[in-house]
Amino acid sequence: MSTPDFLLKGSTVTVVVLELHQYDSEAFPSLLSERVARAPGLFQGSPVVISLESLRAESDAVNLAGMLDHCRDQGLRPIAFRAVPEGLQDKAAQTGLAVLPPGGGRGRSIEVPAEEPAPDLEVHTEQQPVTAGRPTRTITRPVRSGQQIYAEGGDLIVLAPVSEGAEVLADGNIHIYGPLRGRALAGVHGDASARIFCQHMDAELISVAGHFLLSDALGDTVLRKPAQVALDGDVLSVSAL
């Protein structure tokens, strides 16, 4: 029953992604410094993932170590390469940085004060999971009276009954495949788009983003039936599934 010295946890952080289209060792430093100079506060000391996904140039010719030095000169902190092409694998490994698999393209361009965007260089921010981790929490045993289960930062799936007097909470959606007889609170940190889905709606209390209903508000169309709960404006609506 001793407390461990550390925990290994999955987490998501926002980092700047430097997407390299082509690399010219002569032009790169000046292009980069020009770019950084436009929003120095944004880039100073910020972690950067260098994406080689859309690199056009003859990849063997790219001097990765030299490029990292240029980045560091501009105050950026490269932490990893992403989507390293075959020919650069060794060089990337030698730099000591992490090598990440290709991203899902969910990036969104950073709003940099208007000026002609440099064609050779694009900057994205992107949610990049640092270690493997799923925000969804899955519970397979019954949630008993007096127990409280909270899925922090994600969805909660319960494959068993939630008893009267038990409480399940999630920052995201809640799915319950056994009877729901206790309390279910989705979107507890204010996510108004969160929903509750259950196979057998017999809850004491249901809530989405702080808007709640008690059991006596459940009509015969949903009581003890499969139902979902969603926030419609300021009104919590319960509908049959």
């Binding site: 029953m1 045993r141 019954p142 949630v143 008993r144 009276s145 007096g146 127990q147 008893s163 009267e164 007097g165 038990a166």
Partner: peptide, 18 residues
């Protein structure tokens, strides 16, 4: 209901659970 509560304690506070 009390039995349900004690089942929860069995699952969380027994030596086997810990």
């Amino acid at each position: 209901r009390d039995s349900d509560r004690i089942l929860g304690i069995l699952q969380s506070k027994s030596l086997r659970a810990r």
